[in-house]
Design a protein around this nucleic acid. Structure first.
Lengths: 203, 203
DNA sequence: TGTCTCACTTGACTTAAGTCAATGTGATTC
DNA sequence: GAATCACATTGACTTAAGTCAAGTGAGACA
């Protein structure tokens, strides 16, 4: 583990700028010390689709260790980020010797795999109403008696995470509001009827 | 590696029967020696969505090594299968000692991750026409001068792989036929205009 | 050989969700 | 405080793709 620290470098990325672009030579992966970032793909028409949003403490692009010569997507800072950078080749050398470390990374892989499989299930099996309902249920926390879903990203980004567009998200939120399932304020959504949301989320 | 062989067991599964079901205790993962299988999820209405189709030589459910106590999806044999079964706990013990093996497994993980990310991109960024076109382009092989996509699965299953339904697949194939991009026979599709298909696939 | 059963196809209809366009809102900057 | 800019909302319209239903074709099995 000391070896790992010895190859690590600090890095800072400002909100709105790219950590890497799709197609760039992939020479390093990162851990977020502070801040957040979105991983996204661009459609030929320029529409972006967010594959994942990374928060503090998470690994970014660790898949490049084995598989990729180029980054397979874009990564843009949502907030200013402090990062630790791990050069790929130096890291691989260490991996060959260590064992517990590889186990930890594999655990991270497994988790990511599960998330992706769930996401595929959502996209192909459920409509936007269900996807939003499931998101709200899974991302809410109890704050003095009521369930609240903090909007850590803009609605535009949330739409992209859900595999839709801002207009549709807006309309779906409106629908939920009219049904009195939620109450929406600037940066949070209060859940009024968890049971109904859950049943919509399960479709 | 001899250790690994020592914990392995043979297993046979007949076409149409389940290797495991979603929610079953996950005590082992498998390698396909012969045959093929589909990994799928069920919607509440009973519709199935195929997440992946595994062929000879591939690992099945290796993600359960770390992450899952229960299988996260269904697995059904498409053809009769000969398998090698690896009990999870015995395998984990070996992993802790070996290093090259973990590297190989991680490489498999990375590959799977990339496939899933591509699939998410496809589902959320592209329509059925593009998805089918991309599938045909990526799954065809040159057989005496002409590009052919062997249908190793039924059209029903192919539809599910593409995140759609048989009716829509049928119509889309009809559309491609009318445009003279492909010629469809019982169990294979001949590609007549690769360039146009590619441009549709890229959307 | 017929019939049973699937897989597949095709048609008519419906609908979820996207596009385009207009307008509103809230934060930042000069 | 006015101006700007991106995000957000809402309306009118379009369309891809799903549902439902009817019909075709081909292999399996008695």
């Amino acid at each position: 583990m000391e070896l790992v620290t010895s190859i690590a470098e600090e890095k800072h990325v400002q909100r709105g700028s790219l950590l890497f672009s799709e197609g760039m030579p992939a020479q390093a992966f990162y851990v977020i010390v502070h801040g957040s970032a979105k991983i996204f793909k661009l459609s030929p028409e320029g529409g972006e689709h967010i594959v994942h949003i990374h928060q503090e403490g998470e690994l970014i692009a660790e898949a490049i260790i084995f598989e990729f010569d180029e980054y397979p997507a874009y990564c843009e800072a949502i907030e200013d980020m402090d990062l630790i950078r791990f050069p790929k080749n130096a890291f691989l050398d260490i991996l060959r010797k260590s064992s517990q470390l590889t186990l930890n990374i594999m655990r991270a892989y497994s988790r990511r795999l599960r998330q992706l499989i769930n996401k595929i299930e959502e996209l192909s099996l459920h409509d936007v109403k269900s996807r939003l309902a499931a998101y709200l249920v899974n991302n809410s926390e109890k704050i003095d008696g009521s369930l609240v879903c903090k909007l850590s990203v803009t609605k535009k980004d949330l739409a992209s995470v859900l595999g839709t567009i801002p207009e549709t998200l807006s309309r779906t939120l409106l629908f939920f509001r009219r049904e009195e399932l939620i109450r929406v304020s600037k940066d949070e959504i209060v859940i009024l009827d968890l049971k109904k949301l859950k049943s919509i989320g399960a479709h």
